[in-house]
Simulated scan of single mutants.
Amino acid sequence: MSEQKLFAQANDGDVTVLAPGNTRRVLIHAPELMQVEFCFDEGAVGALHSHPHIQVSYVAEGAFEVTIDGKTAVVGTGGSFIVPAGLVHGVVALQKGRLVDVFTPMRADFL
């Protein structure tokens, strides 16, 4: 088994293009936890989806229309939201922005 990565720097990790104006970069992870950065151009969409992981998201920049289980709110810079496991959720970037998401357990599908 490889040694656990304990530190990550700003430019670590590969960028994956998910859709026009939407990218993902895994920052750091352990089997129980994963931190991921998502960047969005204004108007970009994080399509509605669900997964078995608990997710908590921090809006590092911008403003997002966030829908979780049919409920919608606008969350801006410095705000957060949580997505319980299995609920359908998605976002629309109301302005260029960046989300920092934490998942438990780790999203193996992102590696």
Rank of each mutant, 00 (worst) to 15 (best):
E61G: 15
V102Y: 03
G79M: 05
T104C: 15
V66L: 03
G90F: 00
A85K: 08
V88W: 11
S80I: 05
Q95W: 07
A73S: 14
V83P: 00
S80H: 08
G90H: 07
A93D: 04
F81L: 06
A85Q: 08
I68L: 05
R107V: 08
V83Q: 04
G79A: 13
T77Y: 10
A93I: 01
G86P: 07
T72Q: 05
V75T: 06
G79D: 09
T104W: 01
L87N: 01
E65A: 11
E61M: 14
G90P: 05
V66I: 11
V102L: 13
D101A: 00
V66K: 03
G62L: 10
M106N: 08
P84V: 12
I82C: 14
T104E: 05
G62V: 09
A73M: 11
G97Y: 00
V66R: 01
V83I: 10
G97D: 03
A93V: 06
L94G: 05
D109R: 09
E61K: 15
P84G: 09
V74H: 07
T77R: 15
R98C: 15
P105S: 06
M106L: 13
A63N: 12
F81E: 06
G70Q: 11
L94S: 11
L94D: 08
G78I: 08
P105D: 04
K96G: 08
L87A: 03
Q95P: 11
Y58K: 06
P105W: 00
S80Y: 02
V74P: 02
G76Y: 04
G70V: 08
A93H: 03
G86A: 09
V92H: 00
V92C: 02
A60N: 13
Y58S: 11
I82R: 15
G70F: 09
A73R: 15
T67W: 01
